[in-house]
């Protein structure tokens, strides 16, 4: 019962920066490995699996910024991916807007919706915040699924593709993920990162210390939503189809499990875990389809016993190895 250490909080600026830098380097190394994978993986199916892993890695990274760093436990990350996907999807389907422009519009629209949601839920925390964002997610999904005249409902909306080659898509997603990783790193290394973590650790104290809590909480919502919307828009053109299923609560569950298993509030953990979880789940699907049972159990076990996730376990192992 007492094996757990408290979450990494109130770290000094120096310490926090070194920690984030180590995480950033490990994440970059992981991206480098991912960049080399197509040399060995010629199979289009597994390339597709890795592309979807990167889609989830962006979502997990974006949600981790909001939930792990800023402590705002929203249950709507998948919804913003859906909003992003429908933004570019509808623009493309009805007005023939080219995908690249549509993707930019998706980032803006989902970021704005995130901003509004963040603004609306400013005073809410804990279970109240979780419930409000969950209802927001369900309302959005119901609207998308039932506005059949516009979105074609569950049938899905066909949208234009962007690239012909799968390897091209692979590197596009990888580029997007890497750009976001760098952006998050720069953000977290700056004062903003400290402000967000201060709000997470003690909102009242942060306000007393002069942190503009309203601004930074709203900003965290908007940034996280924009990242999700970006991922959703890319995915829309990759799959050439947009459906309300992108916003299912189960999708949010998958994102949440990646972040929890990887280690909430660490830069590298959730992104690496997104690959592990998704690739492993595809493999488990072949072996008997127990993937969701396994991951749900892992989420509960990690939350209960290993609160710092795989990243925390790895760091503890490194420390022990150095001492020995």
């Amino acid at each position: 019962m007492t094996t757990q250490s408290p979450p990494p909080s109130r770290a000094s600026a120096q310490l926090s920066n070194t920690k984030t830098t180590v995480e950033f380097r490990v994440a970059l190394a992981a991206m480098a490995i991912v960049a080399l994978l197509p040399l060995g993986v010629g199979n289009a199916y597994w390339l597709g699996v890795l592309i979807v892993s990167m889609y989830f890695a962006i979502l997990a990274g974006g949600w981790n910024l909001l939930a792990g760093y800023a402590g705002q436990f929203s249950l709507a990350p998948a919804t913003f991916a859906m909003i992003g996907a429908y933004t570019t999807g509808l623009l493309n389907h009805y007005y023939g807007v080219p995908p690249l422009l549509g993707i930019v519009a998706a980032i803006v629209v989902s970021g704005l919706v995130g901003l509004l949601l963040g603004r609306a839920v400013l005073r809410l925390a804990g279970p109240y915040l979780a419930l409000t964002t969950l209802s927001f997610a369900e309302i959005m999904r119901l609207v998308a699924a039932n506005s059949i005249d516009i979105t074609r409902g569950d049938l899905g909306l066909g949208v234009a593709g962007l690239l012909d080659s799968r390897v091209g898509w692979y590197y596009l997603f990888l580029g997007a993920l890497t750009v976001l990783l760098v952006l998050f790193y720069l953000l977290l290394r700056s004062k903003a990162g400290l402000f967000l973590q201060a709000i997470r650790d003690d909102e009242v104290a942060a306000r007393r210390a002069g942190v503009d809590v309203v601004f930074w909480k709203t900003a965290a919502f908007a940034l996280s939503a924009a990242a999700s919307g970006f991922a959703g828009a890319l995915y829309a053109h990759f799959a050439e189809l947009v459906t309300p299923e992108l916003g299912l609560i189960a999708q949010t569950g998958l994102i949440l499990s990646m972040v929890v298993i990887g280690g909430m509030g660490t830069l590298a953990g959730p992104i690496i875990a997104a690959f592990l979880v998704y690739v492993l789940s595809e493999w488990l699907r072949d072996v008997g389809g127990y993937q969701l049972v396994v991951f749900a159990a892992l989420v509960v076990i990690f939350a209960r016993f290993f609160r710092e996730g795989l990243w925390g376990l790895a760091m503890a192992a490194v420390r022990r190895w150095r001492q020995a």
Binding site: M1, T2, Q4, S5, P6, P7, S9, A67, G71, F73, L75, A125, G126, P127, A130, R200, D201, D202, A250, G253, L256, S257, V260, M264, L292, V293, F295, A296, A297, V299, V300, A303, R304, R307
Partner: peptide, 23 residues
Amino acid sequence: GYTSWGLMRDEYAVIVTFGLSLF
């Protein structure tokens, strides 16, 4: 016990019950 992580208490509750539901 667990007073040391009172900070993330709400998040813990959401994660484990959400995870239990999926499970």
